[in-house]
């Protein structure tokens, strides 16, 4: 019986304490953003899907060594290049990223010794078609600087 009333009072007090906490939150400004109308700036290190880095003439830095292709755990990078006649270096002819299997681990960027790929800041990736996620990075690079 001794605990009967003390239980009642301490219990009621704890409930009032909790209500005081939520009441204090009531007039505060919301901490959320209404997303499509406002959005955050992405961090410089944000890991989006990869993109090619071009030089001044918008030619890719890539030398088609294929390190990124080998480093990729899920095999989502496919690149091809050919040696132009008379040229010494291989020239990139296609670079596709299959974003459907990409896990954004960044192994490819780390493995690149030629400063040819980096992470993009793209985060608005949504589509109902699978083909939209098979990204031609070479085309993307060409379109980027236009």
């Amino acid at each position: 019986m001794g605990g009967y009333f003390s239980d009642l009072f301490s219990g009621t007090k704890s409930l009032l304490d909790g209500m005081w906490v939520t009441l204090k939150e009531f007039p505060k400004r919301p901490v959320t953003l209404s997303y499509p109308h406002e959005s955050l700036k992405m961090y410089a290190r944000y890991r989006g899907h990869i993109e090619l880095i071009g030089d001044e003439e918008n030619k890719p830095n890539c030398v088609v060594c294929g390190m990124c292709e080998r480093a990729c755990p899920s095999g989502c990078i496919h690149l091809a290049g050919e040696k132009p006649e008379g040229g010494k270096k291989k020239v990139l002819t296609s670079y596709t990223l299959d974003f459907t299997t990409c896990s954004l681990c960044g192994s490819c960027v780390e493995s690149c010794n030629f400063d040819a790929i980096r992470f993009s800041n793209e985060y608005n990736l949504a589509s109902t078609r699978k083909e939209d996620f098979i990204i031609d990075l070479l085309k993307r690079l060409e379109e980027q600087d236009k």
């Binding site: 939520t22 939150e25 009531f26 007039p27 919301p30 959320t32």
Partner: peptide, 11 residues
């Protein structure tokens, strides 16, 4: 609920 939870509720 929104105001108690630091968010604006339906907007």
């Amino acid at each position: 609920a929104g105001f108690y939870q630091r968010r604006p509720g339906p907007m």
